[in-house]
Design a protein around this nucleic acid. Sequence first.
DNA 1: CGGCATCCTCTTTGATACTG
DNA 2: CAGTATCAAAGAGGATGCCG
Lengths: 229, 229
Amino acid sequence: MRSYGQYCALAKALDVIGDRWTMLIVRELLIRGSCRYTDLRDGLPGIATNLLADRLRELEQAGIVRREAAPPPIATTLFRLTVRGEELEPVLQELGHWGAPLLAEPAAEDVFRSRWLTLPLEHHLRDRTPDLPPVTLEVRTGDEPMLIETAGGRVRTRPGSVPNPDAVLTGPPHLVIATLTGKLDLTDDRAAGLQYLGDPETLRRVQPMSPAPAEQSSASRATDEEGTS
Amino acid sequence: MRSYGQYCALAKALDVIGDRWTMLIVRELLIRGSCRYTDLRDGLPGIATNLLADRLRELEQAGIVRREAAPPPIATTLFRLTVRGEELEPVLQELGHWGAPLLAEPAAEDVFRSRWLTLPLEHHLRDRTPDLPPVTLEVRTGDEPMLIETAGGRVRTRPGSVPNPDAVLTGPPHLVIATLTGKLDLTDDRAAGLQYLGDPETLRRVQPMSPAPAEQSSASRATDEEGTS
DNA sequence: CGGCATCCTCTTTGATACTG
DNA sequence: CAGTATCAAAGAGGATGCCG
């Protein structure tokens, strides 16, 4: 990327990670920890392979990504974030938080990977009753199942499946998100296509406090803009 | 900008504000509140005028910027952020925080506007003794003087100058920053070109707690990268 | 002046094909 | 698997022109 040439922390940050695709590559590495070129490509549908190669080289040079040889059994290159790279997590969290309302309308043409939910969900969900025995909620949406588990007072998410979860939530991404964040109630009319099996308490346990009042789905755009100083 | 086409909050955010120059335009509007096209252009050295016009239109469409006619005396257009636009402040703060280490080395070729310091400084500085009478520190670096004032327990910054500040700090940007953030001591050898006049207590009062140990200026890049999981 | 629109060149991207 | 090579299309940068 061409530098902005400005002595400003924001501009300098953007000089390094402001390029197209760069932050999404960091997202994948944050989600997956350490992974192969092909894993990255799979998590970044739409990226051109030469761009991915270019960006990885730039990120390596910038000290954000490290390339390492995989342990003996397998022979492949692995990519992972450096400490400096991991420090980008709060940035991505804030950006994701700001962008969350844009997910209000269903996916439409968009591709979706259930892994993309793990980071924001860990950030938003809380264990309301950490003293009770841990629970596991399986979420089935998108390409692969996902687990939401309470552990040590925190809520952890990871791709995967278990034999006997306390509950299973199944449905299209936008309804699953609305449900997990408390914007949509299980008894809600709009929940067509959503299925919840198991103890209702499991869901309530991890939902954030003060569930936001149900949003009007997606009407009126230009009219509800309002500015203040 | 071409959409990433991913149903992911981060990708959606970047669809809207990921374009080149866009975040810097938001920075200017956050700093200046409400301003004219030419003010923006001045705060964004290097931008092509057609790009600024394009981006402003896109931001308006996205509900981030509002265009308003200036009050009768003057006849000009004013641009300002909507509420949705102001909600980007935490994002810019995090990005700036991450990028701050990149300012360690002096400006070199970079252009600089002292206004660019106001946002991050307000975020980092603290009033250590809010019960004492308020103080004013004038900073002279870059294109225009700047004031750092304690008020109501907070530290406020703004471009400007006053007749009798409690202290005046003058010098090149990187030394001024190092001083204000406590990385550089007033008695430090490296402070060549830095001048401080007035009560030393004024500076100490607004500096953040636990001043970071003086950084080795800018040696060794490739060697000090280290990864953890 | 303030607020753009046009024109032109150069760089970056996106899509696809190919290789050690 | 982990890229490089190629090429057309889109976008950025820079200069200048226009209009109230």
